[in-house]
């Protein structure tokens, strides 16, 4: 709820809007490609295997379950970590190096509130929605491959797709995406604020952000899956 109040407060509205735009809309391009191809690859791989048993129609289930539960949030997390996370880290690092952070501190403007919170709020809103987007595109990608490569009719595919997916799967996935968003912003800002002098410091902060985010996303993704499915 604090997020909502934060977003709606006058002085943060514009910044949050900008961050929503940067985080969400600007990531749609790369995310579309990634999502569609993940869905297509999943469909093709499982489809070729299932074809040996004459079960091609089950790619609907395979693609949807894997996308909704795991790949959707995971791939969204990785793409956003590599693009938005890296960008945040680079920006924060540059601001640290050029004393902009110090300037804010001297002005008693809390950098966390002023810089981190809008990004965090944007991430919390955008990550689940981008994951929905990734899921939809992944499932559609799978449908296209199913139709063209494996001869699975679209209605059969979609019937099969919703067969074994539960709302729990969907929402656990979205929760996971939210957690990934928090991880990405936290790591990026922390690394950015810690950046040492000069352009090298910016590079180091960016690289570390991507690496640490990836590893944390992997580990936390596993733990959340374990938490909800065992």
């Amino acid at each position: 709820m604090w997020a909502l109040r934060f977003v709606l407060s006058r002085r943060n509205r514009r910044e949050v809007l900008v961050q929503l735009f940067v985080t969400g809309i600007k990531s749609l391009g790369v995310l579309s490609v990634v999502a569609a191809f993940i869905g297509m690859i999943l469909a093709l791989q499982t489809g070729l295997e299932l074809r040996r048993y004459g079960q091609e129609v089950n790619i609907g289930t395979a693609v949807t379950v894997v996308m909704v539960r795991e790949m959707g949030p995971f791939m969204t997390g990785l793409v956003i970590a590599a693009s938005v996370g890296a960008a945040i880290a680079a920006q924060m690092a540059t601001m640290t190096v050029s004393e902009e952070i110090a300037a804010l501190e001297v002005m008693s403007i809390d950098p966390v509130r002023f810089l981190v919170m809008p990004r965090l709020a944007a991430m919390l809103v955008m990550m689940p929605l981008l994951t929905v987007y990734t899921n939809v595109l992944g499932v559609l990608g799978g449908a296209v491959v199913g139709k063209t490569q494996l001869g699975v009719a679209l209605p059969a595919y979609f019937d099969n797709a919703i067969q074994f997916v539960r709302n729990k799967d969907l929402y656990v996935g979205l929760f996971k995406a939210m957690v990934f968003g928090v991880i990405i912003v936290t790591v990026a800002c922390q690394q950015g604020f810690q950046a040492s002098e000069g352009a090298v410091g910016v590079g180091v902060a960016t690289r570390r952000t991507v690496v640490i985010s990836f590893l944390t996303i992997l580990a936390v993704g596993y733990m959340i899956t374990r938490l909800f499915y065992t």
Binding site: F21, I25, L129, Y133, I162, V165, N167, L170
Partner: peptide, 22 residues
Amino acid sequence: TVGAFLFMALLALGVFTIILSR
């Protein structure tokens, strides 16, 4: 743009939820 995306994504989420809850 942001509003349109939020709307579409939430709509998709809603549709998903309804379909999956059968």
